[in-house]
Design a protein around this nucleic acid. Structure first.
Lengths: 339, 339
DNA sequence: ATGAAAGCGCTAACAG
DNA sequence: CTGTTAGCGCTTTCAT
């Protein structure tokens, strides 16, 4: 089966390949008559330009890369969906790379994608380790960091997320407004900046409300969210005045609810549980989980637009635009797990 | 920043680009000394061949496309993860395309991917409509269908899934063995072959067990899984002898459990609920859902290998290999929602 | 064992 | 307004 290309089309109409190219990308005037004939031939043959050849010629592939720990992680699916939507609308495809929190794999993937002239990268870094991003950044390729980023990134690279400090602060204020007096906190991995911010928000809200910060009320994750099963039960046995637990992520909240349930403790009558994320399944838990919502789908949309804006700016001006930060609004979603 | 390519490397060592190419893909003998020098230059410069150029030359892109309704659908995340794993291991990248159950978008995506010389496609067809696949198939590109396929595909195209008839049959046998006498069935969209198969399995098991098939016990989805909230409540009010509901998918089971819960009906004491899928969240429901498990991650692995096998066979022989079917084992996962 | 040259399909500078 | 030409980076004959 002979492949059909610019030249084929040209021959059908009796013009050169360049003329056909010209009508296709319309940057140059072409005689209206030949233009019509060319268009006709194109639609008759169902011709589609070869994007590989275009990419090679233009030095850019109209492909972007989404580099995340795992698509099975519930927060990344909507991010991916949003990213893919704007990519599609703006003419890009998205290549999905799961790193499994392995920096080495991340590095290998980066190199692979570079050798395909990938136009830009959206990252949620493996192990929150940004070495790979740092060296990639030196090559001048557009990058945006989503959800996972550090303090030092904020002025150097595009980031998208919520204000984790403020969001947690607001969550605490809500709990306090509902009469909670002794609020525990389930803390996530310290290496993740956003968790440190959330802990900071927890403390600040306590102090601003004239309550004291009690170190013994914060539970620390050791290996996985499952840790909170025992941590919660031990905490509750040790301190029976606890009337609320604020989990720094929804998966933790789920484990905590199970731990409470298995002890015969009622939610929210005895203890309120507040989550953070609002992943897809939060609403279908029993009871439905109240949580601080992050707009993940919107993260994806925003990251995609930010990235493609960078790409187009770079194509036009030869250099990257100044970095921007995109802090989206969080929202307290009140369901049934809090009083 | 000057780009570094075969010629650059060649100049460093004093050989031509073709020689460098030869050492890289090792299909031809190169003098051991020059070979060493070339390898040295390559590692010193960290040179990576341009895959775009390779693709253009070779007529194949080492990229495969995953075309699914939505990555947010819990069954597709593990499929995607598995596919991506084998793709990576075998040297391919995966481009993710969400069709949103829109055949038109699917078609546009297919054309876009074809213009990039995508080496193969794995499909879960939008609206289970296989027209697009059919015409794509005519181009001779490798395709595998995962989860969603029709009877007519089975001998014409690679498919991966479970034996839906048998899986449902086994689920019913399990329910019956636990003493359930009056088992309702929550049926999914009829246009999906696998749902029709599941309904068939439901009937067959009933009859083989000497129980009668009562049309009034099967609930049909109208618009979404949410329909089953009312359907379940109406059914239970109408027929109080129902002691089990077999949902043809986990999302339906979740809605059904909520409907039951809200009526004050105990699970599994009053009514057992059995799901189908075993999506990630089934285990964390309250009570944890018993379900017929489909090995989705394994679907992804299998589909990836099947597709790449096709691609490699085609590269070697110029034609597609005969189609295969991959029917993986299901498993009854007993948790707490059944007696 | 290696270099020269052609060509994958496209775009853009240069002529005319 | 349009054709010719060169070149993106690579692989692969065809010579030598």
């Amino acid at each position: 089966m002979k492949r059909i290309n610019l030249k084929t089309i040209g021959e059908m109409v009796g013009v050169s390949a360049s003329t056909v190219s010209r009508v296709l990308n319309g940057k140059s005037y072409v005689n209206e008559k030949t233009r019509k004939k060319v268009l006709e031939a194109i639609s008759k043959t169902n011709y589609q330009p070869n994007e590989l050849a275009q990419s090679l010629k233009m030095g850019s592939s109209t492909a972007i890369c989404l580099m995340i720990p795992s698509i099975q992680n519930l927060i990344f699916a909507p991010i991916c969906k949003g990213l893919e939507k704007v990519a599609r609308e703006r003419g890009y495809i998205v290549v999905l790379c799961n790193t499994d929190e392995d920096e080495e794999m991340e590095k290998i993937y980066i190199e692979k994608m570079q050798s395909r002239w990938t136009d830009g990268f959206v990252f949620a870094c493996a192990k929150a380790n940004e070495e790979n991003v740092r060296s990639l950044q030196k090559t001048g390729v557009p990058i945006v960091l989503v959800n996972r980023y550090n303090e030092d990134d904020i002025d150097n690279i595009d980031i998208v997320g919520v204000d984790n400090f403020k969001a947690t602060y607001d969550g605490m204020k809500y709990l306090i407004s509902r009469g909670c007096k002794r609020i525990a906190f389930a803390m996530g991995e310290q290496r993740l900046f956003f968790y440190r911010e959330r802990l900071r928000g927890y403390k600040a809200a306590l102090i601003d409300s004239g309550m004291e910060y009690d170190e013994s009320l914060v539970m620390y994750e050791k290996k996985s969210a499952e840790d909170f099963y025992h941590l919660t039960q031990e905490l509750i046995k040790r301190d029976e005045n606890i009337d609320a637990i604020f989990a720094s992520s929804d998966p933790k909240a789920i484990v905590i609810m199970r731990a409470l349930h298995d002890m015969g403790i009622r939610i929210p009558e005895d203890v309120s549980v507040l989550g953070f994320d609002d992943v897809e399944l939060s609403a279908i838990l029993e009871p439905p989980l109240s949580t601080v919502r992050q707009p993940f789908y919107q993260f994806g949309i925003t990251a995609g637009n930010a990235l493609i804006n960078q790409i187009e700016y770079k194509n036009a001006n030869g250099v990257l635009p100044p970095s921007k930060r995109y802090i989206l609004d969080h929202e307290i979603v009140v369901r049934k797990s809090t009083k």
